[in-house]
Design a protein around this nucleic acid. Structure first.
Lengths: 356, 356
DNA sequence: ATGAAAGCGCTAACAG
DNA sequence: CTGTTAGCGCTTTCAT
C-alpha cells in the first residue's frame, strides 16, 4: 500500500543547534539572581521598574522562552486541557473540537486530544494518561459503550483527583459535574411536531447512535410529540440500526410498514435513509419527508437538500472550554455545577414540504 | 444563543482527594531509598530480583503512577507529539488525525493538536507553543497561506532546535525533512486520463484549495494528461475559486465555455460542482462527468454518487507517526530524509460513465 | 545491590 | 528591592 518513492540523500548538516536559554543563563549574563529574573519576567511587585525593563529586554534579545515543563512541575499546573471524544470523523465532533481548540488557544491553553472510538476501555486508558500528564481539566463526550454499560468509575476517579471536568453532548446523570448539551428532547419534539404539521402521519425514528444519552432523549422527544398530537397519527416506531445494516433494516421495514416521515437521530441515518428511500422509488418530500440531527456539510449537497437540526457544535465546544476554565480558575470544590443548554435551530431545506 | 437551563444545587462534597503517591512516599513505606524504587520500577540491572518484585507489588497496591511532568523535565522528553493541521472539519484531515492519534497512542505517545486555520501567523504561534512544551516531534500539514507566501522560517526554527518533524500532505521542497504525501501529480494525471478515455474532450480543473502544494501538483498532472492525449482535446482550463464564489464562477464559466468533464482538486469543489451543474440542467454523467479528490463520506450520498480518488488519509497519518517515531528513536541528525508516497485509488461511482 | 547527592528549570517564601 | 534557599518528582552518576 505504501511505497517509498525516493530518498533524499543530503545528509543533515550538523549545524549548531539553537540551545534554549534558561533563567540561570539570563541571570548570569545580567549579573543578578535567578529569582530576580524570574520575578521581573513575571512582573512581580517587588522588582524595580528599571530591572524589569533590563531583564525583559535581554530576555527578548536572547529569545528566552520559559520551559513549560519546569513551570508545570513547580506550579502543578500544565496549561493543558484533555479532550476525549468518541470519534473525530463525525462532523459534529470535528466542529466541536475546532471550537475547543480555538477557545483553548485564545486562553493560552493547549489541547490534548484522545479518541475513544466509542470504546469504554479506550476511554479509561485516556483518562489515566491525562491524569498522569497533569492536565488542568478534562472535556469529555462519552463513548457509547460507556453509556450502555453505565460504567463511570473512571470519570469519578478524575473527580477524586480534584481535576475539574465538563461533559458535553453525551452526558450522564450519574456524574455531578458541569455539562453542556443541546436540548435533545425539545429538538426532537419540535422536529417531529414540524413533520406532523406538514401532514405526516407515520413518522419513524431512525438512529445509528443507539444507547447514547442523546439518542434516548431524542427518542423521548419524538415519542412525546406523537402523543401530544391532536390529530390521529401512527404509533411510535424506533428503528435502531448500524451504519452497516441500515440499508437492509430500513428496506425490510418499509416493505411491511407505511412511512411518510423519518426523523434521523444523527446525520448519517438521515442522509443514508434519504438516499435509500429515493432509490426505492419514493418521492421526497412528496411521499416521505426526512429531517436529520446535525447540520453538517452533507446536508446541503444531498438531493433534495436535507432539512436538519443545527447543533452549533463549534459554539458548544467553545462554551465547554469557557465553563471548564472558569471552574479551573475559581477552584473546583464547593461550587454548584451547572448544565448549559445550547439552542438548536431547524434549518428547513427541500427534504420536507415547503408549505403545510 | 446559549441559555442556562438549570443549576444543580448540590454543593460538592469535600471528599478526601486521592493524593498521588510519589516515589518518595513509596520509598519511605518500603524503607528503601528513592533511587532504589526508581531503578526497581525501571527494571534497572543492578537491583535484585527480590526488591524489584517487592517494589512493584507495593507500587501497584498504592496505585502509583509516575509523574510524567517530572520525568519530562529530567529526561528532556515528553512523550508527546505536536500536530498542526490547517483545518479539522475537512474530512481528509479528520481521518488523518484519527490515524495519527491511534498510532501515537499505541506507542504511548500523546497527541497535542493545533489548528492553523490556514493562517501563517497561527501556524507560527503553534510552533512556538509546541517548542516550549517540549514535544518530541512535530507532524505538520502546511497552511495555504504559508505555502502561498513561501515562508518557512518557523519550520526551520523547529529543526534548529533539533526537533524532528514530518510534513504530510501539504509539503514543501524548501524544508529538508521526512515527508509523506500521495502522488498528487500521478493521481490527477490518471484521473484526467480516465475522463479522456471515457470520451471527455473538454475537461476543466476546479479547485478551492489554490496555492497549496497539492493543488499545484494536481494541476500539473491534469495538464500533462491533456498534453499526452492522442486524440484531440480542449485546452487546459483551471478554475480556482473559493467556497463562496464557486457557484457564481462556475456558472459564468459554463455559459461561455463547453465542458464535459470536471476534475475537482478537493472534495468540496467536486461535490458542489456536481450539485450545481445538475441544477443548471446538465445530465451527469451523460453530459458532464465529475471526479473529485478525497473519498469522504459525502461522495457516497450525492446523486449520482461521486467517482473519487481515495487518499487513504488514516493510513497516511499512521505512517507519518511511524516515520516520526523512528526518527525520534534513531536520533535526528546525519540520517537521510525520506519522502514516502501513499498510493491512491480511483473509486468509480456513478458520476462518470460506466463504460468507455 | 543499594543509597546519597546532584540537578533538570522554574517559583516562592523568607531574609537581608 | 534583591538574593538565598528550598523544593516540585524524577533519574542517574558515583560511592559505599
Amino acid at each position: 500500500m505504501i511505497s517509498i518513492l525516493y530518498i533524499c540523500i543530503h545528509p543533515k548538516k550538523k549545524n549548531n543547534l539553537e540551545k534554549k536559554v534558561t533563567l540561570k543563563e539570563l541571570a548570569k549574563i545580567l549579573k543578578v539572581s535567578v529569582a530576580t529574573v524570574s520575578k521581573a519576567l513575571n512582573d512581580s511587585y517587588d522588582i524595580s521598574e528599571e530591572t524589569k525593563v533590563r531583564v525583559k529586554k535581554k530576555a527578548k534579545e536572547l529569545n528566552y522562552v520559559p520551559n513549560i515543563i519546569a513551570q508545570s512541575l513547580k506550579l502543578k499546573k500544565s496549561f493543558s486541557l484533555g479532550v476525549i471524544i468518541p470519534n473525530i470523523t463525525d462532523e459534529f465532533f470535528a466542529r466541536a473540537v475546532h471550537g475547543i481548540s480555538k477557545e483553548a488557544k485564545e486562553n493560552r491553553y493547549k489541547t490534548l486530544i484522545s479518541i475513544s472510538n466509542e470504546e469504554l476501555q479506550s476511554e479509561i486508558e485516556s483518562v489515566d494518561i491525562f491524569l498522569n500528564s497533569n492536565v488542568d481539566g478534562l472535556l469529555i463526550s462519552l463513548a457509547s459503550e460507556t453509556q450502555t454499560k453505565n460504567q463511570y468509575e473512571h470519570i469519578k476517579k478524575i473527580q477524586d483527583h480534584g481535576i475539574p471536568i465538563v461533559l458535553f453532548d453525551r452526558v450522564t446523570d450519574a456524574i455531578d459535574c458541569d455539562k453542556i448539551t443541546i436540548d435533545d428532547f425539545k429538538s426532537a419534539y419540535d422536529a417531529t411536531y414540524f413533520l406532523l404539521r406538514k401532514g405526516c402521519k407515520n413518522v419513524i425514528f431512525l438512529s445509528t447512535i443507539s444507547r447514547t444519552s442523546v439518542c434516548e432523549l431524542r427518542k423521548k422527544g419524538y415519542e412525546q410529540a406523537l402523543k401530544d398530537s391532536k390529530i390521529k397519527v401512527g404509533a411510535t416506531r424506533f428503528l435502531e440500526v448500524t451504519h452497516e445494516n441500515l440499508e437492509f433494516e430500513l428496506k425490510s421495514f418499509l416493505e411491511i410498514e407505511e412511512v411518510d416521515g423519518i426523523l434521523g437521530a444523527d446525520e448519517h441515518s438521515a442522509v443514508a435513509s434519504l438516499h435509500l428511500v429515493q432509490n426505492l422509488g419514493y418521492k421526497v418530500p412528496d411521499q416521505i419527508s426526512v429531517i436529520g440531527f446535525t447540520n453538517g456539510s452533507l446536508t446541503k449537497f444531498t438531493v433534495p437538500s436535507l432539512t436538519a437540526i443545527s447543533q452549533h457544535s463549534e459554539l458548544m465546544g467553545k462554551s465547554a472550554v469557557q465553563t471548564l476554565l472558569s471552574r479551573i480558575q475559581k477552584g473546583y470544590l464547593d461550587q454548584e455545577t451547572q448544565h448549559k443548554i445550547v439552542q438548536t435551530d431547524l434549518i428547513q431545506r427541500k427534504s420536507t414540504p415547503s408549505k403545510s
